[in-house]
Amino acid sequence: MIETPRLILRPWRDHDRAVFAAMGADAEVMQHLGPPVDRAGSDAIVDRLIAIQAVLGHTFWAVERRDTGAFIGFCGLKMAPLGIAGLSGFPEIGWRLARNAWGQGFASEAARASLDWGWSRGFARIVAMTVPANTRSQAVMQRIGMQRRPDLDFDHPLLAADSPLRPHIATEISR
């Protein structure tokens, strides 16, 4: 679907589920996302992403390496969650990679390709969000040209008031 020199971003396949579930069970991968997820929870995430693709024509797509065909995570665009002032109603870029794919530039490569796809579809503004402690994702956001928007920072409405993951920072990029 989207090809880069080293990656393919594509619709989800059933055989992605086991590797994605292993990612969701990895406490280090989930450190800034929430508690590790069991197989049923992981499959539910994949089901939601497939449903988003069916409705919108885009989602956080499966990412595989071109050289090995290995599934390494997801990246893409979906609509930002409802109820977040300044972000809701705009496409959100996001990524999650398996730990063995970290530090190799895959997230930035996939994110740039996702932005290009979004621009080619007429999106004028794309947003991203993460927790303040997630410096790796913030570095990717900076590398792909996103700008920090402290005025749009928020407490995630789906997380408990005492959750250390509730505070989120916001970034954006315009075409």
Rank of each mutant, 00 (worst) to 15 (best):
A111Q: 02
I50F: 02
P81I: 08
A18S: 15
A128S: 15
A161S: 14
A40N: 05
A21F: 07
R65H: 00
D16E: 08
A128L: 11
G41D: 03
A18T: 15
V29C: 06
A25C: 08
I52K: 06
P11L: 10
A70D: 12
M129W: 03
D67K: 04
W102Y: 07
P132M: 12
P81V: 07
D151T: 10
G118L: 04
A133L: 13
S174K: 15
Q53F: 13
I173E: 01
A40I: 11
P157R: 03
G57T: 12
W119F: 14
R149I: 09
G103R: 04
A128R: 03
D47V: 07
N134V: 11
L49C: 05
A124R: 15
Q53V: 00
G76A: 06
I84D: 00
A40G: 09
G94C: 05
D14H: 12
A44R: 14
R6H: 15
R6L: 10
V63S: 01
A113V: 07
V46E: 03
N134W: 11
Q104M: 07
L49Q: 10
V127D: 00
P81L: 14
N134G: 11
R166D: 11
A133C: 09
S137T: 05
G89F: 06
E92P: 01
L77C: 07
T171L: 08
A98S: 13
A70H: 08
E172T: 02
M146T: 05
I84N: 05
P11N: 15
S120V: 02
A44W: 11
D67T: 10
R149H: 12
A80Q: 09
A170P: 06
G76R: 00
A80E: 08
S174H: 14
A51G: 14
E92G: 01
W102A: 05
G118W: 00
H58W: 09
R143T: 01
M1R: 11
S163P: 02
L87N: 06
P164T: 13
G83M: 08
S137P: 09
Q31W: 04
R121A: 08
G103Y: 07
P164H: 14
Q53I: 01
R136F: 00
R48I: 11
I173D: 07
T59I: 06
A113M: 06
T68W: 02
D43M: 06
V46M: 01
R6C: 11
A40M: 10
W12R: 02
